[in-house]
């Protein structure tokens, strides 16, 4: 793998992911963005692991906004200079995605972050407990969503600390 050039790497990935791709773009020379359906995610990730294309660097979750009505998940795979991003878009109201834990066990904490920060339901992930947020954080308030209002997140402890009871 090490001797392969950037073009070859990206070409391999593009060819392999083509069967699931809704849209394929090259936003920067070293990157390949592949939009896939949420239902194809498991097959695509399993395939990337099977052909040993790089390693999963991280999962980024983005809220595209209330008007757009979707959340976007980016699965970044890195191999040398090349970065392949699998983009999955899911509706904001019914945010549901299967877990890729069975193929890449180290994703557990990335998925837990998505659950509490963006309010995504992830099926078959072994642990759905909170990671960052305090115990008394209200249910259904997701800080990385764009319509997040800091006042909604006023926990009893915060309120006390800020002096506004």
């Amino acid at each position: 793998m090490q001797t392969e050039t950037l073009e070859v790497k990206l070409k391999t990935a593009a060819k392999f992911l083509d069967r699931w791709a809704v849209e394929t773009t090259t936003p920067e020379p070293e990157r390949l963005d592949v939009v896939i359906d949420a239902t194809d995610l498991l097959a695509a990730v399993a395939g990337m692991v099977k052909i040993q294309w790089g390693y999963l660097a991280t999962i980024t979750g983005i809220d595209l906004g209330v008007e757009d009505g979707r959340l976007e998940l980016l699965y970044h795979f890195c191999s040398g200079p090349a970065v392949v991003t699998l983009r999955v878009r899911i509706p904001r109201g019914n945010a549901f995605i299967p877990s890729i834990y069975e193929f890449i066990p180290s994703v557990s904490f990335y998925e837990r972050e998505l659950i509490e920060m963006l309010g995504i339901t992830i099926a078959n992930t072994p642990n759905t407990d909170r990671l960052f947020l305090p115990d008394d954080w209200p249910e259904g308030v997701y800080p990385l969503r764009k319509d997040f209002d800091i006042n909604e997140a006023q926990t009893p402890r915060n309120r006390k600390a800020n002096g506004n009871t």
Partner: peptide, 21 residues
């Protein structure tokens, strides 16, 4: 910016419940 709770011995990776945490 993350918390990792893992159990490497058994296959179960995340062994602590929120209450335990």
């Amino acid at each position: 910016r993350m918390i990792t709770v893992r159990d490497t011995h058994s296959n179960q990776r995340d062994v602590w419940t929120w209450d335990q945490l």
